[in-house]
Amino acid sequence: MPDSALWLLPPPTHPLHATLSTLISSTLPSTEPSAASDRVSPHFFAPHMTLTSGISPSLYRDDPQAWLDSIPWPSAKQVRVRFEGPRVQSQDVFVRRCFIKVRLDGVREIAGLARAWGVNGQEDVVPESKTDEWLREWPRVYGPHVSLMYGDMPLDDDKLVEVTELVEKAGILLSEKNSKCVWSGWDGGVVWLVETGSNHIRDWKSIAKRELS
């Protein structure tokens, strides 16, 4: 069976859920060349911040919902996803072709818990543990972020400026200087357990969900 990941999505009633979904599925793909190759063809996925990947199906076996519910998730008011600008970013990594950085402080607890339970066989983030070490390295080697586009071809500076303008036009706050933007992130959200082992993103699927309360 394919490995899985834990994603954190905006609450379904939060305006950012619809806004990010539109950017990912429609607005940003429309800026790509009409004769796009596989390297830049659009990939559609739910708006999310990945908490951790590399989760073995042996953990949840035939009852993924029970496993997800057994994790002592923090309350919604303890989770604060906040975007970090001043613009969108791009890296030469398929799932980070175009993304918005997220500040670590508001998601450190929930990401650490996801890593501890999902990968390291721990029930808490103990000092000097594997999870504690991962949390120190995470911002440097991967870091919390919300992806906007996947692909093998990074965006150049001109494209990043264009995409940043579209993201801010949609109301997402990346720079404090832009007073017209209204959403700097979201609180709480819904945790998805997603099978992501397939090479085809269209085959990725959520197998359990847990709304933070």
Results as ranks from 00 to 15, higher is better:
2 P>I: 01
36 A>Q: 12
101 K>Q: 07
166 L>R: 09
11 P>L: 09
35 A>G: 12
143 G>D: 12
86 P>D: 03
111 A>L: 10
207 I>R: 02
121 G>V: 05
131 T>E: 05
154 P>W: 08
65 Q>P: 10
145 H>Y: 09
189 G>R: 03
28 L>E: 03
159 K>I: 02
46 A>L: 13
18 A>E: 12
130 K>I: 01
97 R>M: 01
173 L>F: 01
87 R>H: 01
136 R>H: 12
54 G>Q: 08
111 A>I: 04
78 Q>Y: 07
5 A>N: 05
204 W>Y: 11
53 S>W: 05
17 H>K: 14
186 W>I: 08
126 V>L: 09
15 P>S: 11
85 G>N: 01
19 T>K: 03
187 D>Q: 14
184 S>A: 15
63 D>C: 09
202 R>S: 15
195 E>F: 02
133 E>Y: 10
196 T>L: 04
100 I>N: 00
101 K>Y: 00
45 F>A: 05
41 S>R: 14
176 E>Y: 09
23 L>K: 03
189 G>T: 03
85 G>D: 00
39 R>V: 07
132 D>Q: 08
95 V>S: 13
193 L>K: 03
47 P>M: 10
6 L>P: 03
103 R>H: 09
6 L>S: 03
67 W>Q: 04
46 A>I: 08
164 T>D: 08
8 L>A: 09
21 S>H: 12
31 T>R: 04
193 L>C: 04
29 P>Y: 08
12 P>K: 14
80 R>G: 04
200 H>L: 14
68 L>K: 00
157 D>L: 10
33 P>M: 02
116 A>G: 02
84 E>F: 10
